[in-house]
């Protein structure tokens, strides 16, 4: 046991020789399971809209960035605990989250949420609606009066609709669109629901410096139209 701690210490001390000023490396935390926003590609690397966006933002802000993945469930506690420096994981800006962490300005407008169902005559307000645990969609369904059934991962919510466990699933429109396209049995039903205040990067509240840098970089990408081009390329949401 002692050896172990010593080992861990030794490891970190040798690594500490290259110690430098604040944020010599910015660690970007993402989920890696939410295409097209972020996913692990066939080569095993983080890929998707946010990978490309994040790399561009880091270049503009002249930061040295590194990508790490973390379970969605503990993605905020690990940020506040300092295991990485930003969350860039398709996270909608909500008042509750804003109390705990800070958000940069939004890099995509509020992505509407859609219902995906196996038939177009399901009862969206009274039926069984699936959602991923801990998402804004789950909160919305709980309040809408429908019977909420929660799953740990986005994949399981889709599977629940396919096998009839749930009547429909509520999730981001951009996540559902390709699934509806490829799956003959599934279709988008009902009207889109506007939830959340757009998607932004999460940073620690004590990290105002980093927030300012990313804010400026996002603004510059908005101004020169490159952000819109990226949004169009990955079909993640509406344009600015």
């Amino acid at each position: 046991m002692k050896k172990l701690i010593l080992g861990a210490l030794a490891l970190s001390i040798t690594a500490g020789a290259a110690y430098a000023g604040s944020h010599s490396v910015v660690r970007m935390g993402t989920e890696g399971a939410y295409p097209p926003w972020n996913f692990i590609n066939d080569a095993g690397e983080v890929d998707g809209f946010e990978r490309e966006l994040g790399d561009e933002l880091c270049k503009r802000a002249e930061l040295n960035c590194e990508w790490v993945t973390n379970e969605w469930d503990s993605i905020i506690p690990n940020l506040t605990s300092g295991n990485y420096d930003t969350i860039i994981a398709g996270m909608s800006i909500t008042a509750e989250r804003d109390e705990v962490i800070d958000f940069t300005q939004a890099y995509t407008p509020a992505d509407p949420s859609n219902y995906l169902a196996a038939s177009d005559d399901v009862d969206l307000m009274g039926g069984v609606i699936a959602a991923q645990t801990g998402t804004i969609q789950a909160g919305y369904v709980a309040e809408s009066g429908a019977m909420l059934v929660e799953f740990a991962t986005p994949d399981e919510t889709i599977a629940a609709v396919q096998n009839g466990e749930a009547d429909a699933v509520l999730a981001d429109a951009s996540f559902l669109a390709p699934i509806a396209e490829q799956n003959g049995d599934l279709m988008i039903v009902g009207d889109p629901v506007a939830l959340g205040g757009g998607v932004g990067m999460g940073v620690r509240e004590s990290d105002a410096e980093l927030k300012a840098k990313f804010d400026a970089a996002i603004q510059s990408m908005k101004d020169d139209g490159s952000l819109n081009a990226l949004i169009a390329k990955w079909e993640v949401s509406t344009q600015w």
């Binding site: 645990t133 709980a142 909420l148 059934v149 929660e150 399981e156």
Partner: peptide, 10 residues
């Protein structure tokens, strides 16, 4: 409720 089985109506 941690692996497999979903929670209904919370």
């Amino acid at each position: 409720f941690f692996s497999g089985f979903p929670a209904w109506q919370q």
